[in-house]
Design a protein around this nucleic acid. Sequence first.
DNA 1: AACAAGTGTGCTAACGTTTTCCCAAACGTG
DNA 2: CACGTTTGGGAAAACGTTAGCACACTTGTT
Lengths: 327, 327
Amino acid sequence: MTTIRDVSKLAGVSVATVSRLFNQSGYVSKEAEAAIQAAVAKLNYKPNSIARSLAGKKTAAVALMVPDILNPFFPEIARAAEDAAASQGYTLVLCNTDNNPDKEKMYIEALINKQIDGIIVSSYTISPEQIITLQKRSIPIVVIDNSFPDHPIVTITAANRYGGQLAVQHLLYAGCGKIAHICGPSHVHSARERTLAYEEMCSHLPWFTPSLTASGHFSVAGGYEAMKHIFRQHPDVDGVFAGNDLMAAGALKALHELGVSIPSQIKLIGFDGIRMDMVYPELSTVSQQIYTIGRTAMDYLIRQINNEPIEKRNYELEVELLQKATT
Amino acid sequence: MTTIRDVSKLAGVSVATVSRLFNQSGYVSKEAEAAIQAAVAKLNYKPNSIARSLAGKKTAAVALMVPDILNPFFPEIARAAEDAAASQGYTLVLCNTDNNPDKEKMYIEALINKQIDGIIVSSYTISPEQIITLQKRSIPIVVIDNSFPDHPIVTITAANRYGGQLAVQHLLYAGCGKIAHICGPSHVHSARERTLAYEEMCSHLPWFTPSLTASGHFSVAGGYEAMKHIFRQHPDVDGVFAGNDLMAAGALKALHELGVSIPSQIKLIGFDGIRMDMVYPELSTVSQQIYTIGRTAMDYLIRQINNEPIEKRNYELEVELLQKATT
DNA sequence: AACAAGTGTGCTAACGTTTTCCCAAACGTG
DNA sequence: CACGTTTGGGAAAACGTTAGCACACTTGTT
């Protein structure tokens, strides 16, 4: 391995000068620069990042903590985060927490003593206090898909409330006269918001009743069960708003099995806009530009790392109604 | 930050002794151990992994290079790899290459000078020579979903050939009399193997003709187009073997649109066994236990890192016919 | 009694950078 | 010309570990 010392010798300057050149810090004369460049090229020198991390304090590595990369929402986040990270010379460490607080703590400990430069967290179990503690240890954090309005924490979310309204409105405009809702886990911020939107829009309507809502746990199987459950009690529903696309796909499957024709008898809309081109008919959904969330999160994380000022705390990204074949 | 020196002072021993205790190397007396443990507990000391990496030569980090984490095959690999890595104290770095050789090289350079301990590679563009070069730089590699029988490279693949035979056989047993094939990219090893299996099994049958095969590029959209293309020329096909599940899903969508009833008129089978519970009817497939591939790859990678002997070079994992609703 | 092997510990030189401090020209400027 | 100031660059101390070497003390064996 060729070191900075080799370069300095060959170039006839001190290691300090070489270091200054690489870090654009301090003065380096044209001649010295040329000599160093030549030596670097000749020796194919690459600064060792481990040593650099030890001496400086930056590892050029950031982490992405997600509950489970198998949930199709997260690969898209990961892809975006990795693209953004790589483009700025950062390396992305992936952590699956399964929403298990113990695992989360383990990972956080491990990341801290690897001196990670920053963390993007998606977690439904982590507390704002935990995050603040981390920030006090001066490690930048960005939270996605969750919101802590009362704490000094940078969060990136979609306009879940507004999106929910959009979805329900779309069903109403399409002429639905009895709309069911398959909701996500109530401890999940985004799920809660979407459900609140549904209730806001529908609770005053004559047909509204709590049994039109069932929980689908944000999963295909859950959506499937919830749909069957709802249909058993309300065979006359003609619209369904699912809190995410996975549940919508599950519901679609259930409706297929029940022999319900879509969208003529029942209209169905999901939420998220995950890549689901494999289902037929294609799902209408409220798309939240997942990629943008991931990229934005990484951008703000790196800004924090660089001590650049950040204007706001809670970034809410736009959502968009995507009408496909199920409405 | 509390360092090993603080501990050594508090415990009244030298830093060497503390280091030895933490690394289980060399001798440490019971008394010294107790004193150190106490000091560690009191100071909440955690060894700094950066310094450790610089002094030792291990970073306890491994990388997973995949073409695109958005392809549902890879999150499952990533999940498995990360689980296995975490369980052994390793951290997982994720790299998306888009099968772009330049990106691959960039990442490899970056990983090398971060002194990554090992790399799991899934790439259809990387050459065995490149890998050998890396190994010569003494960085352990495991290749998944690709095979280099003539080179000293550890590879993990599924029994693609056998699986293809299984799929075709299944269709034949089910009474299919004219079987089409949607193939993947010919430069992809696993795709090629599956196609060869189809040809092996069918080329001698009376109905066989090259136009029964169309390329679907391993994507949903590709499978969709290929299916339509094939059906236009051969409305009398009654069986379709798709080279992966994504293409099978695309084909299913096309057949839906064409008004073909499944499985009565046409039977359809995919390959991979990715989580696709959202499609209806559920796809029959040849499952390759993706999670196991990922876990196995990480296991062998870590074995190489630890200089443990490895028996073979090319590990071929079993596949399994999963009959669902499309056959 | 002598010697080898095993046990326990400390010193200190790496590991490859960055960064602080200091020194020396060269360069305006009044 | 005496002076601050800018420009350029070297020496060496961090950064927090690991590991090789040296030394000392026990044991056990002949």
